[in-house]
């Protein structure tokens, strides 16, 4: 897209208010979605709730193929389709909804850096455990990922995905790591997040930002998803301030709205509760 066209689109985006029928698409919640996608989806939902923007969650078996970037989740707002948290944050900003306006330059730099830390270590670790640990891949990831399809397509798609992720791991230098080293990295990442959070309610004091949404999405999903063993969740449980942080966001942004008795499709879709 040319610069002029892009500027035009963002102008249009800014002019239109947030519609009532905005929709978020993700893979099937019960049978298909995997830990990493579920975490990313929850992060986007948390972000939109923090902004006070209503969105309906729809589960589609082919969400991955509907997405413009091939990654889930994506949102459909008006006549635009945007995938992943980063672009969605930019899009809402163009519409005048932003959580990070109150930060100064250094804080904004730190916020972006910590968001990349979560993507670089936590998300990569989730992908590693899903697809490179043979037990998890055979018992959980491959059957769930390919559940909507019949034989032999399910086998082909699942192995294709696994092959792709494994090559990605070797490109980022994770292929040689053992499972134990990956858990160690997760601990290191949580340690850093826990240090940064300290005793504050949110990462940058009183107001939540997109970083809070991202961390919540990943940590909450890891804590509430059952894998072949509990090692991953146990690593996170060592950091009590992160647990309290997750409960706080869950209570302030997800519980109240459920009580309002909204319609079925916009019902909170994060699954089991922490409390």
């Amino acid at each position: 897209m040319s610069l002029a066209a892009e500027a035009f689109v963002s102008q249009i985006a800014a002019a239109e208010p947030w519609p009532e029928n905005a929709t978020l698409y993700q893979p099937l919640k019960e049978d298909q979605i995997l830990l990493s996608d579920c975490a990313s989806s929850l992060a986007v939902q948390a972000y939109l709730r923090m902004c006070g923007l209503p969105v309906q969650v729809r589960c589609r078996a082919n969400a991955e193929y509907m997405s413009p970037s091939g990654k889930v989740p994506f949102i459909h707002v008006g006549n635009q389709v945007i995938s992943e948290l980063g672009p969605i944050v930019q899009f809402t900003k163009a519409k005048g909804h932003s959580l990070s306006d109150g930060l100064d330059d250094v804080q904004r730099a730190e916020m972006k850096a910590y968001m990349e830390l979560v993507n670089n270590m936590l998300l990569t670790a989730e992908l590693y455990i899903q697809w490179c640990d043979d037990n998890t891949a055979a018992e959980i990831s491959r059957p769930r990922y390919s559940s909507p399809y019949s034989w032999p397509l399910n086998q082909i798609l699942a192995y294709q995905k696994q092959w792709e992720i494994r090559r990605k791991m070797s490109a980022v230098g994770w292929a040689g790591k053992s499972l134990e080293q990956v858990y160690e990295d997760v601990s290191q990442c949580c340690q850093a997040l826990s240090q940064r959070l300290g005793t504050q309610p949110y990462f940058f004091n009183k107001q939540p930002t997109e970083l809070d949404a991202l961390v919540f999405g990943h940590i909450f999903t890891i804590l509430t998803t059952r894998l072949t063993n509990d090692e991953l969740a146990d690593r996170i449980k060592a950091y009590s301030n992160l647990l309290a942080f997750c409960r706080r966001i869950e209570q302030s942004y997800f519980d109240e709205q459920d009580k309002d008795g909204q319609s079925g499709s916009s019902r909170f879709s994060k699954g089991p509760s922490l409390i």
Partner: peptide, 16 residues
């Protein structure tokens, strides 16, 4: 400890 955490975060920023 906080500076150590910042190091990790900014190295991730560089890599990503």
């Amino acid at each position: 400890a906080k500076e150590g955490a910042d190091t990790l975060a900014f190295v991730s920023l560089l890599e990503e």
